[in-house]
């Protein structure tokens, strides 16, 4: 636990919190402005709001956002003597990788919560959509947060490997693109292989878009949960091995 608490302490005065708030708020506002400018209203109420924010967010911005958070979390370790200090302490590679991934995953979950909250506020205040959004959105949001965990592990691993800030973010962009193509082709099994497909799939759940049927079945939920657990375990093992074998640079 000490390692995780230490990681959270490093977030003090960090840009990460700005990303967590600004990225989802900007996404929802951009969607709303688009709707307003085109002179239309979300015809289908909350469903339209959800499509234009959460589903859209799940296509590219979410993966990129997690990429940015992971790069921010690792950036400080690549500076000065921090890498050597990190690797010459008694903290195991597993604890290092796990605590970093936990921090990125928690930030991603916070980002998702901000997104949900912004959707509700804009929906009520700007579009005066009657009633509150359906309760299943909360459940789906929790699934999205879970689906973000393996992406957090992967991006954290990439940012551990690469000193470059933008490199891992570019990988997230390409990965998210590949995921969209696969899901459009109806290859739902991608959620067990590509973490980016997992977040896209989770954000599309119950919307009838892409490969989704519109109904949330137990099988859909189970495949997302299992995909998240399997990928998290596999990626954590892999990134830990890499960190442990790696020699310090410079």
């Amino acid at each position: 636990m000490g390692a995780v608490r230490a990681e959270f302490l490093k977030l003090k005065r960090s840009l990460s919190w700005t990303v967590v708030v600004l990225l989802p708020v900007a996404m929802v506002i951009a969607g709303a402005v688009n709707t307003l400018v085109s002179g239309s209203r979300p015809e289908d109420g909350w469903h339209t709001m959800w499509l234009r924010s959460v589903v859209f967010h799940g296509l590219f911005p979410l993966a990129i956002g997690i990429g940015i958070l992971a790069s921010l979390v690792w950036r400080v370790e690549h500076r000065g003597g921090n890498w050597n200090a990190l690797m010459s302490g008694p903290t195991s590679a597993l604890r290092i990788m796990a605590s970093k991934a936990v921090v990125v995953a928690v930030l991603a979950a916070a980002m998702q919560a901000v997104l949900l909250l912004t959707v509700v506020v804009i929906g009520v205040v700007v579009f005066a959509i009657p009633g509150l959004p359906p309760g299943r959105y909360v459940g789906v949001s929790l699934l999205i947060m879970l689906a973000c965990v393996p992406v957090a592990v992967l991006q954290s691993g990439l940012s551990m490997l690469m000193r470059s800030f933008a490199g891992p973010i570019a990988v997230a962009f390409l990965g998210a693109g590949a995921a969209v193509v696969l899901l459009l082709a109806g290859l739902d099994a991608a959620v067990f292989v590509i973490p980016y497909a997992l977040i896209s799939r989770a954000t599309q759940l119950g919307t009838g878009t892409f490969g989704d049927t519109g109904a949330i079945t137990g099988g859909d939920v189970a495949s997302i949960v299992i995909g998240a657990l399997v990928l998290t375990a596999a990626l954590t093992t892999a990134t830990t091995q890499i960190l442990d074998r790696r020699d310090t640079r410079t």
């Binding site: 000490g2 390692a3 608490r5 230490a6 302490l9 490093k10 003090k12 005065r13 960090s14 400080v76 500076r79 000065g80 003597g81 921090n82 050597n84 200090a85 990190l86 010459s88 302490g89 008694p90 903290t91 310090t248 410079t250």
Partner: peptide
Amino acid sequence: GHIGSLIESPPGYGHLTGRENIRLVQRLL
């Protein structure tokens, strides 16, 4: 766990104070 070291350049997170840096080490270890 029994070796202290400082290799090449000194460690430290620039955006944190000295006290916060020390507290990090305290929590970690």
